Amino acid sequence: MKNISVIGSGTMGNGIAHVFAQSGYKVSLVDISSDALEKALKTIGKNLDRLIAKEKITEETKQSTLQNLTTYTDLKEGVSNADLVVEAASENIDIKLSIFKQLDEFTPDHCILSSNTSSISITKIGAVTQRPEKVIGMHFMNPVPMMKLVEVINGYLTSKETTDAVVEMSKSIGKVPVPANDYAGFVANRILMPMINEAIISLQNGVAGVEEIDTIMKLGMAHPMGPLQLADFIGLDVCLSIMRVLQDGLGDDKYAPSPLLVNMVEAGILGVKSGEGFYDWVEGNNKALVVSKRFKS
């Protein structure tokens, strides 16, 4: 498999395109917005420059990586010769099912169709195609160029051949693939999201403030990042969506999202992407975060 198509050029999509292109694959990056594609290429360029500054790669590697990338706003054109598609569009089941119906029609018969979904059923996605045995989850972690894990999700009808191919492909781009089965939240988010949700409930109930909660988890549990800061990076809307998938899929009220989380999302407070979450996010220089007055204890 040499030709990779990545659907969606946001944070996850451009990161996935970056790592495949840097590893020598020909990558088609597809998005309905030409502006988003232009922004994605600039982001990839900046990330490559950071690697050069750290002496991780050379200027030649940067140039070859960029040469391996081609952008498309037409889905059919962008996937016409794909060996593997990685869908990284919005975490919305209707959008994903629509995309996979089109991918099934537009891609070659041998092409593996994968989704970077963090919670949506791979079995359900595969069911809208004529090749469910070739549909699989490739759940990359953010930031993609830095994080080693790829959670490989087997749908009910995913074949062993597909799983083996995706495992080997993940290794070839320097990742560590770990297989899991298709249950709500898979492994990563079934464990992570309830912890984040409980941290938000603790804040809501006045147990402690934002910095206090995050500091306790960092220093006491050896977490590199506190759960509230991590929620801001993930996106509070994404956290809410995953909690609702867990609640619906597992049928247990212990997965009910915090009312504070619901209210924040409804108010448009989404974390880094909106400039405010549990922290105020100030651009530039990776300076220390300032806790929002809204949530001080």
Score class of each variant (00 low, 15 high):
residue 1 M to D: 03
residue 5 S to P: 10
residue 12 M to L: 09
residue 14 N to L: 11
residue 15 G to A: 04
residue 17 A to D: 06
residue 17 A to Q: 11
residue 19 V to H: 11
residue 20 F to D: 11
residue 21 A to M: 13
residue 29 L to M: 09
residue 33 S to A: 04
residue 35 D to P: 05
residue 40 A to D: 06
residue 44 I to G: 06
residue 46 K to A: 12
residue 51 L to N: 09
residue 51 L to I: 12
residue 55 E to A: 13
residue 57 I to K: 15
residue 58 T to D: 05
residue 58 T to I: 06
residue 59 E to Q: 14
residue 59 E to P: 07
residue 62 K to W: 14
residue 65 T to M: 12
residue 69 L to Y: 13
residue 72 Y to W: 06
residue 74 D to G: 13
residue 74 D to F: 14
residue 76 K to Q: 13
residue 79 V to E: 09
residue 88 A to E: 01
residue 88 A to G: 03
residue 90 S to E: 09
residue 90 S to Q: 12
residue 92 N to I: 02
residue 93 I to H: 03
residue 93 I to A: 03
residue 94 D to N: 15
residue 94 D to E: 11
residue 95 I to Q: 06
residue 98 S to P: 02
residue 100 F to C: 00
residue 103 L to T: 13
residue 104 D to W: 13
residue 109 D to T: 08
residue 111 C to E: 07
residue 111 C to T: 13
residue 113 L to V: 07
residue 113 L to Q: 09
residue 114 S to K: 10
residue 116 N to W: 00
residue 121 S to Q: 01
residue 125 I to P: 00
residue 128 V to W: 05
residue 130 Q to C: 07
residue 130 Q to E: 10
residue 133 E to P: 11
residue 135 V to E: 12
residue 136 I to H: 12
residue 137 G to Y: 03
residue 139 H to N: 01
residue 142 N to I: 00
residue 144 V to G: 05
residue 144 V to S: 09
residue 146 M to D: 01
residue 149 L to D: 00
residue 149 L to P: 00
residue 150 V to F: 09
residue 151 E to W: 05
residue 162 T to N: 10
residue 163 T to N: 15
residue 168 E to I: 01
residue 177 P to G: 15
residue 178 V to G: 08
residue 183 Y to E: 02
residue 191 I to W: 00
residue 192 L to I: 00
residue 194 P to H: 03
residue 195 M to F: 06
residue 199 A to P: 15
residue 202 S to I: 03
residue 202 S to R: 09
residue 206 G to E: 02
residue 206 G to D: 01
residue 208 A to S: 06
residue 210 V to T: 04
residue 211 E to H: 11
residue 214 D to E: 10
residue 214 D to T: 08
residue 219 L to T: 11
residue 221 M to F: 10
residue 222 A to D: 15
residue 223 H to I: 02
residue 229 Q to E: 14
residue 231 A to M: 03
residue 232 D to F: 08
residue 233 F to V: 07
residue 236 L to E: 04
residue 236 L to P: 08
residue 238 V to I: 07
residue 239 C to W: 04
residue 241 S to P: 02
residue 241 S to A: 04
residue 242 I to C: 01
residue 244 R to G: 02
residue 248 D to R: 07
residue 250 L to N: 00
residue 252 D to I: 08
residue 254 K to L: 14
residue 256 A to M: 12
residue 264 M to N: 07
residue 265 V to M: 10
residue 265 V to Y: 03
residue 268 G to W: 05
residue 273 K to L: 10
residue 274 S to K: 10
residue 276 E to R: 09
residue 277 G to C: 01
residue 278 F to D: 00
residue 278 F to I: 00
residue 281 W to C: 05
residue 281 W to S: 06
residue 283 E to I: 15
residue 287 K to S: 05
residue 288 A to N: 14
residue 288 A to Y: 13
residue 290 V to L: 15
residue 294 R to D: 14
residue 294 R to Y: 10
residue 297 S to K: 15
residue 297 S to F: 15
